[in-house]
Design a protein around this nucleic acid. Structure first.
Lengths: 240, 240
DNA sequence: TTTATAAAACCTGTCCGACAGGTTGAATTG
DNA sequence: CAATTCAACCTGTCGGACAGGTTTTATAAA
């Protein structure tokens, strides 16, 4: 319940807020808190660290923006479930400030998702396999509504990451969703014909079936093909 | 210079700080700011958004903790260079709250770093290749000092990521450094003999040479072997 | 006119106090 | 013993204040 007093002197970057952030994360660790567990109140921390409530607030808010903790008015702060929020903001920041380009995003996604499809084929539950196949089929069903196709596509990829049973993969795949929402329509439009678009949907379905069949090699290769063709389409659209 | 007034109504989560965070990131995007560019002052934003300075401060501080912006006393906030700070905090949070285990970290690292070594072999400059080889050799040179070996090991992996010329890979590899610093000694100790430890160093040198030689297949396979053997060592140490 | 210096204006970091609500747990009451 | 009420807590937001650090402006010197 109390913050370890000896650890107050974090390797903080000069300002008190960093110190407070360190103290809070330290508190989580030393007390082995898990998602949902409550943190000390602002006033308590303020007293224990001998800093003003403002400093503690800024620390709490920072951790909340990163989704490491949850804040609720009236209630105490709680430890949060893992979430891709922070990484999403970071990736989008990188793209918007021209420090990351779309090809680099695609390369990372391809690398990660070849692995998630492999793992999904090995570890998916039947229910997960059905959901994945459902998303793939929804893309074809809603063919005329590009927005719905996109959302199903995103959900498809995320569900595969979930089925890999490694939350880090889910976070990374999730983190790219924001950027993907902006580039997806470009890829869709840049396909030369509806035939090509149907072909893309076909790959999704085959991939879902490979995962359902528990065939990791096939799943991985289909994912690679999917990304290669998407990259080609994007290239055709002039995204160097 | 001014915040787009129509965008003030972000999809904010009820609280004003989220709104402010959205307004600031929006400002960066609409004005196409890059690293080093200055942001409006707290007072300015406070007026434009019609919120108190406290709210703007918490928003700024949140973005600073995520390393999206840099704060300096007296100076205006500036757009920050991409950095793995936010992701590191997130990963460490996940590990410490038992939402992520070490095997999952290793799987992600293996996946990512097989790719970075492939790319490094293809894209590295001569200078980068020399630095990578230098880190590998330093591991053997400082064999007796485990701490130095570890730091060279970490630097080795990070430099390979840099040589891949994809900043996202650098970020991800960097994000795992904090966790790795905690698990590395376990792996080092769990090696059965000094011979095994030398063998591990040997792989690093061979990998560096593969990258120097521009052989992506060899580099990738050596990286895979490295991770497989590390995983084995960790397993032997009882890390399920 | 140009340059160097000094002053003013600006800016962030931190603290304090205040008040509106939302939440929680304990005392009171039926 | 259960339901209700109330007091204590807690967070969200605001405003003001002051110590430094920084930038710009104005002034003086060369």
């Amino acid at each position: 319940m109390s913050v370890a007093p000896a650890d107050e002197e974090q390797l903080a970057g000069g300002n008190l807020v960093s110190t407070a952030v360190g103290a809070i994360t330290q508190h989580i660790r030393t007390n082995e808190l898990g998602p949902g567990d409550r943190l000390p109140s602002e006033a308590t921390l303020s007293k224990e660290l001998s800093v003003s409530r403002s400093v503690v607030r800024e620390a709490f808010r920072s951790l909340a923006t990163m989704r490491l903790i949850d804040l609720n008015v009236g209630k105490r702060a709680t430890v949060a479930q893992l979430d891709h929020g922070a990484m999403s903001l970071m990736i989008e920041h990188g793209v918007h400030t021209a420090q990351i380009n779309i090809n680099q995003v695609y390369d990372v996604r391809r690398t990660i998702e070849m692995r998630t499809s492999t793992l999904a084929a090995l570890r998916r539950t039947d229910a997960e396999a059905r959901i994945i196949l459902g998303h793939a089929k929804a893309m074809e069903t809603n063919f005329a509504d590009a927005d719905k196709v996109m959302e199903s596509d995103l959900a498809f990829h995320l569900e595969i990451a979930r089925a890999s049973k490694n939350p880090i993969f889910s976070i990374i795949v999730g983190a790219f969703q924001g950027v993907s929402r902006q580039t997806w329509p470009i890829g869709w439009r840049s396909r030369a014909s509806d035939a090509e678009r149907h072909a893309m949907n076909r790959i999704h379905i085959e991939l879902a079936e490979a995962i359902l069949a528990g065939d990791p090699q096939a799943a991985s290769q289909l994912m690679a093909r999917h990304f290669d063709e998407s990259a080609k389409a994007l290239l055709a659209a002039g995204i160097a």
